[in-house]
Structures are given as structure tokens and as C-alpha cells.
Design a binder for these strands. Structure first.
Length: 808
RNA sequence: GCCGGGAUGGCGGAACUGGUAGACGCACAAGACUUAAAAUCUUGGGAGCCCUCGGCUUGUACGGGUUCGAUUCCCGUUCCCGGCACCA
């Protein structure tokens, strides 16, 4: 054959052809009501940034799409929707920077994302069902969701210390503060006491924690949620205050150490500080409170370890010993956790120990590792035997936790208690670009939910949408929006002007996808019953305690309110890894950003997809190296040549080749199922290498290869499938099946070891007996060299694998 | 500090329930084709040593252990990534 006449893999025309054909035929817009094997394949929808699609997006979507296409070719009715998470500060801040209006910018970004980029990556998106969170037809239902939660008592307004981002000029949820900084702009967050809207996610803390035991999610994600929820078991104990009627309640995980309580500490913000402070101590206490208040979060973190505090002048009574103990105020106790007050056990808590050393407070050992008493040079936090603990002496401290808790319960001085680190979800934002909170404030009737018939509360068009730092949304400056009437009494009232956290938009979007055509309900119950929970969800782990926690909460709430019958939204969730470039994180400043468009144009989407997946295990990410993509391109070039070279009819007979063929089907199947795409691709390459070496290349073998690469290279496989004479889509051809019996070869490499060291590998028939195997090995020259003149202690035979001769 | 994940050639990475470490690919080298180059095809390789077919020694972050045999299991250590963190 003449080289220059050879058929050429022209990815540009092939990919265009199949994009158009899929769209024209509506291959991926499935009839949701007429399916036998529904499979909901979900990927985290993107926010349409002006910079365009990031390679990280492509990586995420491709991995998910490969799974979806694999299920499709296996015969499932795969629903693979996509949408745009377009509300929120990211879009708004960008619009501000560009001097544009988000209402004008966002549709442009979406169009660019969709038409120039997302449509090019070869995913089987069901476009007619796309969702845009800024569309009133969508956010009407986001507001509806708020109203339901409000009516159910899960949404409330309260004055609380909240996280304030001075740059974004809004409050944030604690999940959106990453080590003291705003998740969006990295500005240091400050604490402010403000009236805000919250969702009572803490009511679900135990369920959110408990279900982690059984949900099929990536371990890394579950562990992050576990840490975030921060469940800890212990007890709450009441301490009487000398000369006061009040009791001081504390939370502790170590009730077994109560005999060792030698003082107590209040958080500076604790309400009782004012009353307990004696007049002589008052100036000092007030000075300390002023100083702590002035400290930033960062200073407090930096100082962690150094203990500061002052004595209030007040005393409490140790409920176990009856002795008077001083009450201090110190900022190592946090108002936001437990009761904001602690019982201090310096002998058995490192922080209390340090504090006691600093201020010369008594240290009493009550848990001894060996039962004898010690000079305490540091806190002992392990378990041991109770000492100096009255009637409890001699008990193991771990046991004592339960015993003492019960003792307190019997004396009505305390109770077993589980504490969570999780806080309620602060939902309100003092910004413009979000769905308005659907609430009307009436002086007479209080805060009222906007009646459902009046939804959506449209986000008014405002030329000046700049946040003003007043603690209220820019909507507050729009009197036309603000002034309204009370839905209960009809009197004059004001609208709530804060908008909702855009994480609420994304907390329920997967409910909407299967029901996009219903405008009278957020989601149809029949559709939902058929399609949810989501079968497979893939996304980045940066949302482990944001989006992924909120979706679980919202799903549980929807169940409790009777809208749905399941409480976990995703049957399976897998976090994909991160993709880096030449060993380093991608960043604009480093100039090592991979532009997907360039690679898709140059090598084709199929190549790009496959290469991204070939970089490393999908759940762990990979290192992108520009040259590496050529390997994948060569792989597809070779397949293309093979298929266009009119392969022979008939079936291959070579047993070795058949073994390779069936093994490839088996291994590729298994590895795709586990999202180990890199190894699946390696097996495909190995198979091609084997196939190309055959004297006769059979069409049937090429067809199997084409079907196996289909999830990775959808356009190319369709083209090749057609070239091989088929009319329908390769995705309707079924996934190849393997025959286990064909994988077994006639012979194998019998490894011969002496004392565990390999001395030879001998071709031996499968099923060789132990005696024959030993004989074979012992007749090997290189083996005899090592056993000659030595006494044989043992002969080990592992069938089908090796013989090991142990000598001395 | 606690929790989770990880460390394997020049590089990205393979290795099932402990059984030939380095599959597959990149880069590299040699050869074939070519006037030449590109493309393509073939071959080669962890390191060190004897260097002759071939063989020996050594090698999966480090130090021990269990085992006939350890990248894999156990104990200890270092470093990297992610989560939580003065959370009582």
C-alpha cells in the first residue's frame, strides 16, 4: 500500500461529524419515563467562569463521562445531565472587576462554556435538560426550598457571632472559612455579631455522622466530613457557684478526671463573666476582655499554647470533692464549643496543665498509669487507675467515665452528652448576585415566608449592585424592592434584602435535572422515585465539607418533610484527584496552565480525554506532561490504520492471542468499574501490541478493541464502527464479554527459587504435578549450582507459580 | 497533636488473596526505510559487577521484625499531600 494514500485519522472532521450526528439524533436526550435500566450519572456542575473551562473541569467531566458511557454500552439507560452554577460571589466579583453587570456577563460565559467548550469534550450530556441556577424558573424552587425549611423550623434568624469577610463585605458560613481565610478571596475573616439567617444543620449532626458508616463514598471525603462534624462523647456537669444561685455547666469528655478539677475557666464571651466577677477583680477582668477582643483570629491561632487569663474573683464548688475552686476567664476556652466554660484538670489535660503552671494553680493527680502517685512534670492524658478519687479509687479510668457519668445523673448534677463541632449553616449573604431570601418582615406579624404563589421573588435589576459593607445587601438600597405588604395582615412591611448562599443553589440541583419540564413543582415525585438517589456522583474533594455536606442535609430535610423517601442523595460518590503540570500545581503566575482547547484542537478530544485518564489513577490525579499525549495519539493512529486496512474475516485461532483477548476484556472491564482508567488504557495498549503482531488481523478482534475504547474515545470508536460496516451507534453494540476458560494458557513460567532467590524460570505445562515440577526445577543447571553439597530442608511448591528449595 | 492518603527507574506510573518488581506510556539510544529529515517499524535498558552465551550482587523513603519468600503483613522513624485543631 502506498503510504501517501493511506487513510488518515482526521480527528477534526470525525469529531465534528459525530457531535452533529449525536445531537441530530438526540442520542443522549433520553425519554426518562420509558427506560428499563435507569442509571443516573452525575458530575458536579461548573460555575461558568469568564476564563473558560479549566483542565480540571475537563478531567472531572471526562472521568465521569467515561463511566457513563461504559454503563451505556453495557445496556443501561444513562442520564447524564449538566448545568451551570452561576449565582454567587465568584461571578459577581468578576463582573465588578470588569465593570460589567453579572446579568449580562453570566449568559455570555454560559454560552461560551457550553457552545465552545463543553460540547467539544465528547461527553454525553442531555442538553435539553440543562439547568441554570440564575434562571428564575430554577431559583423559584430554591426559594421554595427555603420556605419549606422555614415552615418546618429548620430556618431561623438569630443574632450570633458570624464570620465576616471584609473584602467580600458579607458574612460566610463556617464551611467557607478555610484556616481563617475567605474561601473565595483569601482575605482574613473577622468575627462579628450580626442578625443572620441560619439553617439548623446541627439538628442532623448525628445522622450526618452516623450514615458515614455505610454510605459508599471515597474514604477521603468521609474522613473530611467526620472531622468537620466532630462528634465527641462525654458529659455535661453542673458546678455550683459560691454565693450565687447560678450553676455553671461544662462539657467534658473526661468525667473520670472530675476529682482533679482545681479551677474553672470561662470563655471571655461567656454571659456569666459579668456577674461572677468580684468588684476587686473587675478592672483587671475588663482590661483582659478588651485585650482579647482586639486580637484577631490569626493572633489567637499564633498564640495557641501561650496561656493568658485572669481570675474573676468568683469561686465554684467541685461537685466531687466539695472544695472551693477559683473561676478564671481565659481565651483558650472558646464560646462556640460546648458550653463556653470548662472544668480544668491540669494533671490530665495539656492545656490546663500549661495554664496551671503559668498561674501557679494546684495540680492534683487522679489517674495514674501504674497506681502509684507521681510528681507531674507534664499532663498525663492516657488511661490508668483512679487515685485521689474517693469511692472510685482503683477503678480503671476508661470504665470510670461511664460510672461517674451515671453517678452524676443519679445525683442530678450532670448528664451524658454528645457534642458536635458542626455549627448551623449561615445562609444569608449581604450581596447582590443570588436568590433573595423569600421573607417579609412585618412589625406586627414578625418574619413571614413569602407565600408560595408569590414565588419567585425576582432579583431586581440594579445598576449599582456594589456591596456597601453596611451589613445589608445592596438590595436594601432599592426601596421599590424593599417596600411591600405583609402576607398575613396586609399592612405595610419590608422584604428581607439578604440573598442566599449560592451553596443552596447547588444543594438540590440534581433533584431538578430529571424534572426540568415541570414548572409547577420543583421535582416530580414519580420521576424522582425512578431516578434518584443518584447512582454515581463524581466530583472534586474540595467540596467535602461544603456542597457534599449541604446536599446530605437538604436531602434528609426533604425526607423528613415528606417529599422524598430516601435520606442520602448519592448511592455512590467518588472524589477524583487533582491534576498537576510537570510536578507542580498549575497556576497562572507559574505559567504552567494547560489549555484544553489547544490540545483538543491539536490532538482531538478523544486523545485528550484518554491522555488525561492515562496520567495516573483517576481518584488520585496525575501529572500532565505535554509530550506524553503523543503516546495516546500514536495508539489511536495505529488502531485507525488497523481498522482501515480491511481486516480479515473469520475468527482468530491462536490460543495465546485468544488468551490475551479475553484477558483484556476482563481486565479492562474490571478496571473501568473501579475508575482505574490508567491501567484500563494500559491493557488496551498491550492488547493492540499483541494484535498488531498477529500474522492475520481479524475484523472481529478489531471490533472488540473498538468497543473497548469507546468510553474513552467516543467519536473515534463511532467512526471506526461505521468503517467496519455497522450502521448503528457503537454504544448500542453491547460491551464485549469474556470467556474465562480461554484465558488459561497451556504453559506458564515456572519460577525456580533456592532460598527464596530466583535462579531460573522454566516453561512448564499448566497443571503440572508437584513431583514433575520439582524434577524440572532440580534438573536445572543454575538451580543445581546452588543446592549442590547442601542439605535440602524443605521444598515448597506453589501450583501454577513457583518452586522454592530451601537449603542449608 | 488527632484523622485520612501517599513515598517504586531519567519522568508519569504498574504489580491479583505475600510468589519473576518496574506492565503501559514518555524521554533516551541503536538499527531498518529515506538523498536527507519527519513519520513509521524493529530492538535495548534499575544500579553495580564478572562482562562470554549467560550469570552474580544489590534494589520499592529509612531502621527493625514475621516468613521458604515482603513493594505487599507487623513494630518504629523520616518526609510529602489533604482534613481538623487551645474543640475541653
Amino acid at each position: 500500500m502506498q503510504r501517501d494514500k493511506e487513510a488518515k485519522y482526521d480527528h477534526l472532521s470525525i469529531e465534528k461529524k459525530w457531535r452533529e450526528r449525536w445531537e441530530g439524533r438526540g442520542d443522549y436526550h433520553i425519554d426518562l419515563d420509558n427506560t428499563r435500566k435507569p442509571f443516573y450519572n452525575l458530575m458536579m456542575f461548573p460555575y461558568p467562569s469568564a476564563e473558560g473551562l479549566h483542565v480540571g473541569n475537563v478531567y472531572a467531566f471526562t472521568g465521569s463521562d467515561i463511566y457513563g458511557r461504559f454503563m451505556k454500552i453495557k445496556g443501561y439507560d444513562v442520564f447524564e445531565p449538566i448545568g451551570f452554577d452561576a449565582f454567587g460571589m465568584h461571578s459577581e466579583n468578576f463582573a465588578l472587576k470588569k465593570g460589567m453587570h453579572p446579568a449580562e456577563l453570566v449568559p455570555k460565559n454560559i454560552a461560551n462554556f457550553r457552545d465552545n467548550q463543553l460540547k467539544m469534550i465528547g461527553a454525553m450530556f442531555d442538553w435539553p435538560r440543562q439547568v441554570d441556577t440564575t434562571d428564575p424558573r430554577y431559583y423559584k424552587w430554591t426559594q421554595w426550598l427555603f420556605v419549606q425549611l422555614f415552615k418546618y423550623g429548620l430556618a431561623y434568624q438569630d443574632v450570633a457571632a458570624v464570620n465576616w469577610c471584609p473584602s467580600c463585605q458579607t458574612v460566610l458560613a463556617s464551611e467557607q472559612v478555610i484556616s481563617g481565610e475567605c474561601e473565595r478571596c483569601k482575605t482574613e475573616v473577622t468575627q462579628k455579631k450580626m442578625l443572620q439567617w441560619f439553617f439548623r444543620i446541627t439538628r442532623y449532626a448525628e445522622r450526618l455522622h452516623k450514615n458515614l458508616e455505610w454510605i459508599d463514598w471515597s474514604e477521603i471525603t468521609k474522613s473530611a466530613q467526620q472531622n468537620w462534624i466532630g462528634r465527641s462523647e462525654g458529659a455535661e456537669i453542673d458546678f455550683e457557684l459560691a454565693g450565687m444561685d447560678d450553676k455553671l455547666r461544662v462539657f467534658t469528655t473526661r468525667p473520670d478526671t472530675v476529682f482533679g478539677v482545681t479551677y474553672m475557666v470561662l470563655a471571655p464571651e461567656h454571659p456569666i463573666v459579668d456577674r461572677i466577677t468580684s468588684s476587686s477583680q473587675r478592672p483587671e477582668v475588663e482590661k483582659y476582655l478588651r485585650e482579647t477582643k482586639a486580637k484577631t483570629e490569626q493572633e489567637r491561632i499564633d498564640e495557641a499554647g501561650k496561656k493568658t487569663g485572669v481570675f474573676t474573683g468568683g469561686y465554684a464548688v467541685n461537685p466531687a470533692t466539695g472544695t472551693l475552686i477559683p473561676v478564671w476567664v481565659a481565651d483558650y476556652v472558646l464560646i462556640g464549643y460546648g458550653t463556653g466554660a470548662i472544668m480544668a484538670v491540669p494533671a490530665h489535660d495539656e492545656r490546663d496543665f500549661e495554664f496551671a503552671k503559668t498561674f501557679d494553680l494546684p495540680i492534683v493527680e487522679v489517674i495514674s498509669p501504674d497506681g502509684s502517685s507521681h510528681q507531674m512534670a507534664e499532663a498525663y492524658t492516657g488511661e490508668g487507675v483512679m487515685v485521689n478519687s474517693g469511692e472510685f479509687n482503683g477503678i480503671n479510668s476508661r470504665e470510670a467515665i461511664g460510672v461517674i457519668t451515671r453517678w452524676f445523673e443519679n445525683h442530678r448534677k450532670g448528664t451524658g452528652k454528645i457534642n458536635y463541632r458542626l455549627h448551623d449553616w449561615c445562609l444569608s449573604r449581604q450581596r447582590y448576585w443570588g436568590p433573595p431570601i423569600p421573607v417579609i418582615h412585618c412589625e406586627k406579624c414578625g418574619a413571614q415566608a413569602v407565600p408560595e404563589k408569590d414565588l419567585p421573588v425576582l432579583l431586581p435589576e440594579m445598576k449599582d449592585f456594589r456591596p456597601d459593607g453596611s451589613g445589608k445587601s445592596p438590595l436594601n438600597r432599592n426601596s421599590e424592592f424593599v417596600e411591600t405588604t405583609c402576607p398575613v395582615c396586609g399592612g405595610p412591611a419590608k422584604r428581607e434584602t439578604d440573598v442566599m448562599d449560592n451553596f443552596l443553589d447547588s444543594a438540590w440541583y440534581f433533584f431538578r435535572y430529571p424534572s426540568t419540564e415541570f414548572n409547577d413543582r420543583p421535582f416530580d415525585s414519580e420521576r424522582t422515585g425512578k431516578w434518584l438517589p443518584v447512582d454515581m456522583y463524581i466530583g472534586g474533594n474540595e467540596h467535602a465539607v461544603l456542597h457534599l455536606l449541604y446536599t446530605r442535609f437538604i436531602t434528609m430535610a426533604l425526607k423528613d418533610m415528606g417529599f422524598i423517601e430516601f435520606e442520602e442523595p448519592f448511592k455512590k460518590f467518588r472524589a477524583h484527584g487533582l491534576i498537576i503540570k510537570d510536578g507542580a500545581k498549575m497556576s497562572k503566575s507559574r505559567g504552567n496552565v494547560v489549555n484544553p482547547d489547544t490540545f483538543i484542537k491539536e490532538y482531538g478530544a478523544d486523545c485528550f480525554r484518554t491522555y488525561l485518564m492515562f496520567l495516573g489513577p483517576y481518584t488520585q490525579g496525575g501529572d500532565f506532561q505535554d509530550k506524553g499525549i503523543m503516546g495516546v495519539r500514536r495508539f489511536y493512529d495505529r488502531i485507525f490504520r488497523l481498522a482501515s486496512d480491511s481486516p480479515a474475516h473469520g475468527e482468530p485461532e491462536d490460543k495465546r492471542f485468544l488468551a490475551l483477548l479475553h484477558k483484556t476484556i476482563r481486565d479492562v472491564t474490571g478496571h473501568i468499574e473501579n475508575l482505574e482508567y490508567n491501567t484500563a488504557i494500559a491493557f488496551l495498549m498491550e492488547f493492540l501490541n499483541g494484535l498488531a503482531k498477529q500474522n492475520v488481523i481479524h475484523k472481529s478482534s478489531v471490533e472488540i478493541l473498538v468497543r473497548l475504547i469507546a468510553p474513552f474515545a467516543p467519536h473515534l470508536s463511532e467512526e471506526l464502527w461505521e468503517m467496519l460496516g455497522h450502521t448503528g451507534s457503537v454504544f448500542n453494540s453491547g460491551w464485549p464479554v469474556w470467556d474465562e476458560t480461554k484465558i488459561v494458557a497451556d504453559t506458564f513460567q515456572l519460577v525456580a527459587q533456592v532460598n527464596g532467590k530466583i535462579r531460573a524460570a522454566i516453561e512448564a505445562p499448566v497443571g503440572i504435578s508437584k513431583e514433575d515440577a520439582l524434577a524440572l526445577v532440580e534438573s536445572n543447571e543454575n538451580v543445581t549450582r546452588f543446592i549442590e553439597g547442601k542439605s535440602v530442608l524443605k521444598k515448597i511448591y506453589v501450583p501454577g507459580k513457583l518452586v522454592n528449595i530451601v537449603v542449608q
